[in-house]
Simulated assay, not measured.
Amino acid sequence: MGRGKSLTDFEKGQIKGYIESGLKHNEIAKKIGRSQNVVSNFLRNEADYGKKMIGGKKYATTASERRLILRTASNSHLSASKIRDECGVNASLATVKRVIRSAKHLKRLKIKKKPPLNDARKEARLRFARDHMTWNKEWKAVVFSDEKKFNLDGPDGYNYYFHDMRKEECFLSRHHSCTGGVMVWGAISFYGTCELQFVSSKMNANVYKTVLQKAFPQFSEIFGPIQWTYQQDNAPIHTARVTKQWIKDQNVNLLEWPPYSPDINIIENIWGLLSRRVYEGGRQFQDSATLVEAIKKAWATISLSEIEKYYDSLSNRMFGIIKNRGGHTKY
């Protein structure tokens, strides 16, 4: 649709007169037979109304600044506001968003929580489920463990990111950089929890072994003479030779865990409970020390009945894997 006819000097005079008499923009538009937009545009900038813009498109950023914004946004979890701060450009937030939207190779996507499963991974999950589908009381002797990241400004990770379609998609991970938060190691048993340990995101196998050295006596005390089993995922520090050998030396069974299977690790559900309590009411934290105290306080509220509920769900999780032929379950 083309532009409408500009206001005449007479119409401009009418508008000024009506506005002085207290009429609203829509009322003036009806009286002079023009659209409300035309009236509002004139009143918004009387001095420049009707002047033609000379020259081509003007940018609030330079070409190099736009390239920097797009490089920073590529597969980034940062918000547009933080991208602007990271780039140090003197431009409005709307301009930065416009630059990102104009890039054909960038698309705003929600991070997928479930990792991809190829045929080999599905087969490993299916084999594990079949081997453990008859377990019932046996699960009560298993200790489930994991690490989790807690951010200062809210629950783990950003829900959305700027996906660069020239790169692989991102999946939600708890094992990423610990900037602006803390990394926590925790474990649960059917009979209770152990003390949380706050660790570095760059933890290696030897440091992980010291974590276990502090935690295992707590579970040995809980189980007494009962033989118990330790569960961990397949992170490199968990599968390292030094880690496995140390666990074996403690006369503790190690549960061989299928790859890419957070949906059957029930401590994931406990992390969910913990996060909701830590960040209840949209709470955010100014420093790590305050966040740590909040996590410890919330961890102490995890009840045995809550833990037992998830242990009771393990049989159904095994059957869920079998039903989905190794695929993801609803958990």
Rank of each mutant, 00 (worst) to 15 (best):
E268W: 02
E268I: 00
N269E: 06
N269P: 02
N269L: 04
N269Q: 11
I270Q: 03
W271E: 07
W271R: 12
G272A: 13
G272K: 13
G272L: 10
L273N: 11
L274F: 07
L274N: 03
S275G: 13
V278Q: 05
Y279S: 04
Y279L: 07
E280S: 11
E280G: 07
G281L: 05
G282Q: 00
G282Y: 00
Q284L: 04
Q286S: 15
Q286N: 15
Q286L: 12
D287T: 00
D287I: 01
S288M: 12
A289R: 13
A289G: 02
T290S: 15
T290A: 13
L291K: 08
L291V: 08
L291M: 08
L291Q: 08
V292L: 13
V292R: 15
E293S: 15
A294M: 08
A294L: 10
I295R: 06
K296H: 07
K297W: 03
A298M: 01
W299Y: 05
A300R: 15
I302C: 04
I302H: 01
L304N: 14
S305Q: 12
E306R: 12
I307V: 13
E308A: 11
K309D: 10
K309W: 08
K309A: 14
Y310A: 03
Y310P: 02
Y310D: 06
Y311I: 02
D312V: 09
D312L: 15
S313D: 09
